[in-house]
Design a protein around this nucleic acid. Structure first.
Length: 212
DNA sequence: GGAACGATTGCT
DNA sequence: GCAATCGTTCCC
């Protein structure tokens, strides 16, 4: 039975956090399965911010030349080597924070970069880009290693995007990575108008949109 | 200790 | 097309 007093922009079942086991799988599988899920953040004393994941990228460990992990285990990349289901948050270009979900087994430095969400609740600023969404949520390095299954920063069940609606393309901003730059490791909801601006221009240029 | 370089964004 | 801006990584 629905609670008539609930604000109910979002019902409770979709807000159930995804369990640890969700993240302890093949990283590409996790990336695709993350589309349609909710990124929910409620800092102490503030109202919740919720967005629907519409664009992600998979980073596949030390052999992946586009990944920070290609430099091995360093102070920065340590979170990727740790338990799946936690956040890996880093500063890029000295200005923007980026949020990842750590995936796979401990010791295997894989992660999924959250590139864009569609505002669902409490989000005012733009969320169509990895730096923009962290700015909109107010996320920064203090939330590095946050447990996405149980902390104030979590990813919840939402409603997964069906396979036929998932678009695939090479990753953005990793031209330095040689052949790895061309791997189809970016996934997005083809029906969403909230994918990143960078993605749309890249797709126009290289025509690499391969919906699957 | 120093230099080069970004998993981006926004303005020209 | 390109500047902003600073932590990380790597070389001396």
């Amino acid at each position: 039975m629905t609670d008539p007093a609930a604000p109910a922009a979002v019902n409770s079942s979709v807000l159930e956090p995804l369990p640890r086991a969700f993240y302890v799988r093949d990283t590409v599988e996790v990336a695709r399965d993350l589309l349609g899920r909710y990124l929910a953040f409620q800092p102490p004393g503030q109202s919740p911010m919720i967005g629907r994941l519409v664009e992600v990228e998979a980073y596949l460990g030390e052999r992946d030349l586009a990944s920070h992990a290609s430099h091995g285990h360093t102070r920065r990349t340590a979170p990727m080597y740790e338990e799946a289901g936690h956040a890996y948050i880093y500063l890029v270009y000295g200005m923007y924070w980026c949020l990842n979900a750590v995936t796979g087994a401990v010791g295997s430095p894989c992660a999924v970069l959250i590139r864009a969400v569609e505002p669902v609740e409490g989000l005012i600023q733009a969320t169509d880009g990895p730096g923009k969404l962290c700015r909109a949520y107010g996320l920064d390095g203090r939330w590095n290693r946050a447990d996405l299954t149980s902390s104030e920063l979590r990813i919840t069940a939402g409603c997964p995007v069906e396979a036929t609606a998932i678009g695939t393309s090479p990753r953005i901003g990793v031209a330095y990575a040689g052949a790895w730059a061309r791997e189809p490791l970016r996934f997005f909801d083809r029906t969403s108008r909230h994918v990143s601006r960078t993605q749309r221009s890249a797709l126009r240029v290289n025509g690499s949109d391969r919906s699957s």
